[in-house]
Design a protein around this nucleic acid. Structure first.
Lengths: 143, 143
DNA sequence: ATGCAAATGCAAATCGTTTGCAACAAATGA
DNA sequence: TCATTTGTTGCAAACGATTTGCATTTGCAT
């Protein structure tokens, strides 16, 4: 199956080009993160990886996540309290609107905001690697 | 010196009204967080607090930070890897640009972005209560 | 196939944070 | 004021997430 068919990127070739060895654990982890839709933490990735090779270690998952993060393959989300959670980067970026009453999460995207962010960062002398925008709101009472 | 003169809020009265005891450690910590401009972590607050009362414990700092967070006196920022960092809430809203290499936090504010957020929320049928925008960037190498 | 640097698994270490508990101190009322 | 009540403290030990040292194994260029 080709990349064109799956819509996914061929990370193996990409990483090998960067001088990174494609080992058995890395191949498995890479598949897991590129196939999932959710935002698993390291331990969850480990749990899934073990199903395919039961001597993969948690350390390797952590080491691989750091590696993939540095290469822009995945994105890390830090939470207060809990563990970091990871997301396969490269898809279209989106932000979140959280309904404070129900806890519902609505995804949205605004090119204008993305542009403004870049502008602001440039003015401050920075290049943006990624960002996090969360709106917390309440459903408007349809008057 | 009055609140009007300092621009600061009288947290002690505020908290006491909420049924919270104002103890010596809490008073010191409260002063530290309301007087600082930066975003110290728990250990840094502890370090500063010890200067004023050398038997304040780190646990008390952590417990107090949680307490103040719940009462909206301070805001917690979670970072990947590092410890949570705190900021005195209540002043004018601003967003953050985080230097991923040094951990520096730069504050900024964009009315345009604030407006756009309101617009987006309205389109989605929501009213925004508050939001969090964090840009993660790397200092641009001055060519 | 072979050699060597790089990656692995394991256990122990580390870091930030929380918790159990006995001593202690803030608010309350006599 | 003092005693009572109840919340808070400091300490040390526990905890969860992540990293690291090291001996062994593996990818992969030759």
């Amino acid at each position: 199956m080709t990349e064109r068919m799956t819509g996914r990127v061929d990370h193996e070739t990409e990483l090998r080009k960067a001088g990174i060895r494609i080992t058995r654990p890395r191949r498995i982890i890479l598949r897991i993160v590129s196939e999932t839709d959710d935002h698993p933490d390291a331990y969850e990735i480990f749990r899934r990886a073990v199903k395919e090779d039961k001597n993969i270690s948690l350390s390797t998952v952590y080491r691989t996540m750091k590696l993939l993060e540095e290469h822009g393959t995945i994105q890390r989300h830090a939470f207060a309290g809990g563990p970091s959670r990871f997301e396969h980067a490269g898809e279209e970026h989106h932000d979140h609107l959280i309904d404070v009453e129900t806890g519902d999460v609505i995804e949205f995207r605004s090119d204008k905001i993305e542009k403004l962010q870049d502008e602001i960062a440039r003015e401050l002398g920075y290049d943006i690697l990624h960002h996090k925008l969360e709106l917390y709101g309440r459903k408007r009472r349809s008057a």
